[in-house]
Design a protein around this nucleic acid. Structure first.
Length: 265
DNA sequence: AGGACTGTTCCGCG
DNA sequence: GCGCGGAACAGTCC
């Protein structure tokens, strides 16, 4: 699933494709989404924004909220129908914005404006780690009280919203932190390193992955793996070239790190 | 055949 | 409250 940077890319795309346009018809291809877009016929789109891993698209007085979960993505589907399309927005300029989602784990909500605040209040979402600058002290206080590994802590949506399994490994790598390091063991310089690593990681992914359609590492793709350690087990470390990228499992999710640059603590 | 997978939520246990 | 495992959701690709 897309994480913060990928949802940011899709949000920018959807904003560019839809802002100011009129919705001719909302087509719910997958009835399991249980969303009714009929009332939005003829409505005008506002400017899309992102909250954590959620894409928020204003339509007239409502908000179309999308969570892509593992395999969802928003694309332009104006020419040919794609497999696994779950929802289509037919726009007044002839374009079609589609939500495609192979595994069908994604969710869509149509939230009336008067319910918006309660809807987002019901989501366990901490503050955004990007693009506003956050320093080491902010990170320390956001993850205060957690005793588990830093890698798992970075993925806690209720503490800081948007970072996922890839980001957690990549941020630990950039901060030279072993992903198994317990949160209480981090010192001030470690937190500073985390604070520096997060925007560096997000900006890197934005620069590499920006385009009309995001790609997943495990999909057929022409672009190379854009990550430093994720899915690179067995390869030499891209930084020190001595260590080997190691794969471990933490809380059921794969982690990747350089055994040399990120020694256990 | 079996496992892995860029996520979330729930449950049970300690 | 915290942390973990496991399951569920669900489909495809090795």
């Amino acid at each position: 699933m897309p994480e913060l940077p990928e949802v940011e890319i899709m949000t920018r795309n959807v904003r560019q494709w839809s802002a100011g346009r009129r919705l001719l018809r909302g087509e719910v291809v997958d009835a399991a989404l249980k969303v009714d877009l009929s009332a939005l016929q003829g409505a005008v789109f506002g400017s899309a924004h992102r909250r954590g891993k959620y894409l928020c698209l204003p339509v007239a007085a409502s908000m179309l909220v999308v969570h892509f979960r593992m395999t969802g993505k928003a694309i332009l589907e104006s020419t040919a129908a794609r497999p696994h399309t779950r929802l289509r927005l037919h726009l007044d300029d002839g374009t079609v914005i589609a939500i495609v989602d192979t595994r069908r784990l994604g969710r869509v909500w149509m939230v009336p404006s008067q319910e918006l605040s309660s809807f987002f209040a019901s989501l366990p979402l901490g503050p955004e780690p990007w693009p506003q600058p956050r320093d080491g002290g902010w990170w320390r206080s956001q993850l205060a009280g957690l005793r588990g590994p830093i890698k798992n802590a970075l993925m806690r949506q209720d503490r800081v919203a948007g970072l996922g399994n890839i980001a957690a490994s990549e941020i630990c790598f950039r901060a030279r932190l072993n992903p198994h390091t317990p949160v209480p063991k981090l010192d001030a310089s470690d937190w500073d390193a985390v604070a520096t690593a997060v925007p560096a990681f997000v900006d890197h992914v934005l620069s590499v992955e920006s385009g009309p359609e995001i790609a997943y590492v495990n999909e057929q793709r022409t672009a190379p793996n854009p990550f430093a350690v994720y899915a690179r087990q067995g390869q030499p470390c891209p930084r020190c070239a001595h260590g080997m990228v190691t794969r471990t499992v933490q809380a059921g999710r794969a982690s990747f790190f350089c055994a040399q640059c990120q020694p256990p603590r």
